[in-house]
Design a protein around this nucleic acid. Structure first.
Length: 445
DNA sequence: AGCACA
């Protein structure tokens, strides 16, 4: 003969000055909530958008009796409590005060909670383009949107956005309007299990893709599949330590690491040959293969190391640096998708240093070229250093430097150790070939 | 429609 059953069967609840309201319409604003409750007393605190479907709320009266009056009134009223014609169910909360630890402006965090009002599930795409558009406005450097995204966000700059933000231009035409509410989440690190149409972790390119979730109609996991308010944990400021492995210093998504580097060469005033690249990149370890090619009118090269670690060190060390003084031949490095280059063992645009025969061939076949100082591959190309280039390094046209210059890397001797191949000094007498600035070794500046 | 950042 117990006097109280299990909680789910309680017909009476301990009165509380906090009331729990449910079955609210999705549009229900805090103001409407207050309108409903204020006949019974002043509302001192609220919490709206509660629950999986964001259609519950809490209100707090200063006095317990006011809450009792409201519950009692609607318990005996023939007219149910309504918001926008929808019946709202009211009961005592099982807590006695509303704890609002969100107070967005006061507790900035690195994760943003973004609530979108008035959109259907399918209206908002997780596509990069949406987030790019949206968050570039706020100096957010990395993007995504849907249920959970990691973002690089400068949250302080997002503060002005706590106001509702119209962003209908991001949405399909049939969507009349949509507002965003942005607040700080209490989360500090979102645990993204897989990449899908509704979750994305831009810092982890290796995260598995959920094949059933990446496409097709949205499966809303919270039952009501057309809850029309979606809340997203949208923005996560990822610290630099988080980013080291996955996101570059500019915040852009970093490609998966690879033992092969893709080098784009900017301002290629002088020819960048296989040998030049070999010299430069060998400072960080054995270079296995090199391939040079043209893409979109600029020169790119693939440089293969035996392992990712070496490639990574080279990439970090060389990124943004110039092979020659004066801003010439500036390197931009990224990881290639390749892991093993299929290149001709020896040509003017490629080299495979892993093939001993090819190395010997390379070495021997180079000798006559060196002797004649005529390298057909470079003859007459557009990279001849013009006379009188301002800032041209090392103008003295006399003689050839016999080896790599001292300045280009921290370990200039390391390149020669792995095969009998000796890289041809990449510098050539001024005006004779176009392989480099006159009498100048490639060195990184 | 059932208690608070899935």
């Amino acid at each position: 003969m117990s006097t109280s059953g299990p909680p789910q069967f309680r017909y009476t609840q301990t009165p509380s000055k906090v009331l729990h309201l449910r079955n609210l319409p999705w549009e229900c604003s805090e103001e409407e909530l207050v309108e409903l409750c204020k006949p019974f007393g002043k509302i001192v605190n609220t919490k709206i958008n509660v629950g999986a479907n964001r259609n519950q709320a809490f209100v707090e009266f200063p006095d317990l009796n006011q809450a009792i009056q409201m519950v009692s009134y609607y318990a005996s009223s023939s007219e149910p409590a309504q918001v926008r014609g929808k019946t709202v169910y009211i009961q005592y909360s099982n807590r006695h005060e509303i704890v609002n630890n969100k107070s967005p402006g006061d507790n900035p965090g690195n994760v943003l909670l973004v609530t979108m009002e008035g959109v259907e599930a399918g209206d908002v795409s997780i596509d990069v383009i949406h987030l790019k558009k949206l968050f570039c406005l706020f100096s957010v450097e990395e993007e995504q949107l849907r249920m959970y995204f990691r973002l690089l966000a400068l949250c302080t700059k997002l503060l002005p956005l706590k106001k509702q933000l119209a962003f209908r231009y991001l949405l399909p035409e049939h969507v009349g309007s949509c507002n965003l509410r942005i607040s700080y989440s209490a989360h500090t690190d979102l645990n993204i299990k897989f990449q899908s149409h509704r979750s994305r972790d831009y810092t982890n390119p290796y995260l598995p893709v959920n094949p059933t979730a990446i496409d097709g109609s949205l499966q809303v996991t919270h039952g009501n599949h057309f809850s029309r308010i979606y809340s997203f944990f949208l923005a996560q400021h990822v610290t630099s330590s988080h980013l080291q492995l996955a996101v570059g210093p500019d915040g852009r998504k970093k490609e998966p690491e690879s033992n092969v580097l893709l080098a784009s060469i900017e301002n290629m005033q002088y020819a960048v040959t296989v040998d030049v690249l070999h010299t430069v990149f060998s400072a960080f370890g054995n270079v296995q293969k090199i391939a040079i090619f043209e893409k979109n009118g600029s020169t790119q090269a693939l440089i293969q190391y035996p392992d990712i670690a070496t490639a990574s060190v080279a990439k970090e060390a060389l990124e943004g640096h110039c092979i020659y003084d004066g801003g010439y031949c500036k390197l931009h490095l990224s990881y290639s998708r390749h892991t093993d280059l299929n290149v001709k063992a020896y040509s003017d645009k490629s080299r495979d240093y892993t093939i001993p025969d090819a190395s010997l061939l390379a070495a021997s076949s180079q000798i006559p070229w060196q002797n004649h100082q005529a390298m057909p591959a470079y003859g007459g190309n557009a990279y001849n250093a013009p006379p009188g280039v301002p800032g041209m390094p090392h103008q003295a046209p006399t003689g050839q430097s016999p080896g790599p210059g001292p300045g280009y890397g921290s370990n200039p001797g390391s390149y020669g150790g792995h095969t009998s191949y000796q890289p041809q000094p990449p510098m050539h007498p001024y005006g004779n070939t176009a392989a480099g600035p006159p009498h100048s070794s490639p060195h990184i500046s």
